[in-house]
Amino acid sequence: MNVKESLKRFGLVPRHEALPKIRALLANEAEAERLGEGREEDLALLCCVQLFARGLLEDVLLIWNAKSAGMDLGASLDVQLLCGAGLETTKSFLASQSRADAALALHYLVQCERAGDFEGFSPKEHLARYRDYFGPLRNACTRD
């Protein structure tokens, strides 16, 4: 599946029923990044944006694991994509987890917050940036 197909099938803000497929696509893209295999350009980003748009805490570590998969995804996936449920809610969620990757994600998130990466942040406004980014493809699709 490519970005245009995913937008057409799921939209930028997907329905709940689409989330398992989007999660699987993201996991596959992250694994391809880890293995140094070819990935579909911007598909991992779109999957993260789609999960971010739903704002479910259960997706935070999946997005973090994709961001941590390698240098390319690490650079292309904004830290703000972890925070579809909001910055404070996400930090609280990560702090409540006992997994090592949650501690790493929280540490990174706090560092980015201190660096000013979340000044003026709101999930709604951040999603609007991606509406513009994916707009030309999204407008060619029937959903969203």
Rank of each mutant, 00 (worst) to 15 (best):
M71P: 00
A18M: 08
N139H: 12
L127M: 07
D132I: 12
H126T: 04
L19R: 13
F10E: 00
S98V: 09
K21V: 14
V60K: 05
R9P: 00
Y133W: 15
E88L: 13
A103M: 07
A32L: 06
R114G: 02
L77K: 11
E41G: 03
L51Q: 04
N139L: 14
A24D: 01
N28R: 15
S76T: 14
K124L: 11
L19S: 04
E125K: 15
K124A: 10
G70R: 05
P20W: 10
L26G: 00
S96E: 11
L19W: 06
C47A: 15
Y133A: 02
S92C: 10
N2S: 07
D72V: 12
M1D: 02
G135H: 09
A75V: 14
N2Q: 10
G38V: 11
R114T: 03
A18C: 10
N2T: 08
D72K: 08
R138G: 01
A30I: 03
L106S: 05
R99T: 14
E58R: 14
D101W: 01
M71R: 07
W64C: 03
T142C: 03
K67C: 00
L43F: 08
E31L: 14
L43H: 07
W64H: 13
R15D: 02
V3D: 00
G84E: 13
T89N: 12
K67S: 01
W64A: 08
F10K: 00
E119G: 08
P14R: 05
C47I: 11
E88F: 08
C83I: 13
A85L: 13
C47G: 02
R131D: 00
L25V: 04
L87R: 13
T90K: 10
R9A: 03
E88D: 15
C48P: 08
Q80D: 04
L109N: 01
D132E: 15
W64Q: 08
F93S: 03
C112V: 04
R99E: 15
G116V: 10
T89P: 10
G70D: 03
C47D: 02
G86R: 14
R138W: 10
L104H: 09
D78N: 13
D59N: 15
D59I: 08
A44P: 03
L94E: 01
V49H: 09
Y133V: 07
N65A: 15
S6D: 04
A95I: 12
L94N: 04
P136S: 02
S76Q: 12
A95Q: 13
L43T: 04
V3Y: 05
L109C: 04
S96G: 15
D42G: 02
C83W: 11
R23P: 01
E5N: 07
A53F: 15
I63A: 06
G116M: 09
D101A: 11
L51N: 01
L62K: 14
G116N: 07
L25T: 00
L77N: 05
K4Y: 07
L46F: 03
T142P: 04
G70H: 05
S96I: 09
V3N: 02
Q80M: 12
D117I: 12
H107I: 07
K124T: 09
V110P: 01
M1K: 04
R9K: 10
G38P: 05
